[in-house]
Amino acid sequence: MSEHGLSIMEHVARATPEAVARRVRGLSDRAIQWLFISPTILLLLAINIFPLVWTIRLSFTNYRANRPNARLLEIGIANYVSVLTDPDVWAAMQSTAHFLFWTIFLQTSIGFGLAWLVDRRFRGHGFWTTVILIPMMLSPAVVGNFWTFLYQPQIGLWNYALQFLTGIPASSFSMIGSVKLAPWSIIIVDTWMWTPYVMLICLAGLRSIPDYIYEAAEVDRASKWRQFWTITLPMALPFIMLAVLFRGIENFKMFDMVNLLTNGGPGSTTELASITLKREAFEKWRTGYSSAFAIILFVTVFGLANIYVKVLNRVKNR
């Protein structure tokens, strides 16, 4: 209720011009609901559903966007068969899996550790929390570009830091040019950038645990270690799992940062699935093939995310 004892709806009703009010008065509640939500539904249909349906349709054809005059042939599931039997696609999926596993593992471990430390509320923790959050506020394009310089063997700070720590000459190795190091170079950058995000979610989880549970544990003389394993971790687990879900989905479709940092190279060492997809769709112009590839990736992410959400719900309801 607002001032003069009128509800907001009553204010709106009074402010509505008589002519409009008369017209609206003739509509049912259901019709008004539709009136309000239809623009959003139309927008969703236009920018989400229609492209999806159109992509599914194209995936069963030989369509190429750069050959508008060529005859369009219905080729059934041939594109899907080609994608699933293409060794380059499987190589890209392997690179993606490697990237996904290590980024999620490192970001979750470090992110949770940082959240646990920040949650101690030590002196200046607010300042350090802000400092830690800076990387995730940067644009992936900027991050990709400046890490290219940091990794530069002759002038890059990364190599000089390693030389200082290990004694290995800075110009004797190239993080983004070596087949062995390049996959780790993208994992390091992604971890640097997105660990703060995981930390924030974990911090929310840690701060949602009521103090009285710890007080009860203290009364029961539970050790800190036991408190961590029986209170902190189980109660923060849904939050950690949520962070894993978000990072998993994001990194499965990782493109911008890796494209700028390594361009998929050296060779195809860091060519993630999304980079392969972009090359097929907008460089080779195999629109039908890339549509099938996109649908396969979509179904994979959607399916895995659904299974994961079910597990997450089970953990929450425990």
């Binding site: 750069n66 050959r67 380059d88 040019g177 087949v179 190279g265 050296p266 060779g267 195809s268 060492t269 090359r279 460089e283 080779k284 112009w285 195999r286």
Partner: peptide, 22 residues
């Protein structure tokens, strides 16, 4: 007309061998 596909194939094969040493 398919030059882009031909080019990208060569980019991949040559880079894989020359730079990545595969």
């Amino acid at each position: 007309p398919s030059y882009a596909q031909l080019l990208l194939a060569m980019q991949k094969r040559v880079h894989d061998y020359v730079v990545a040493g595969k």
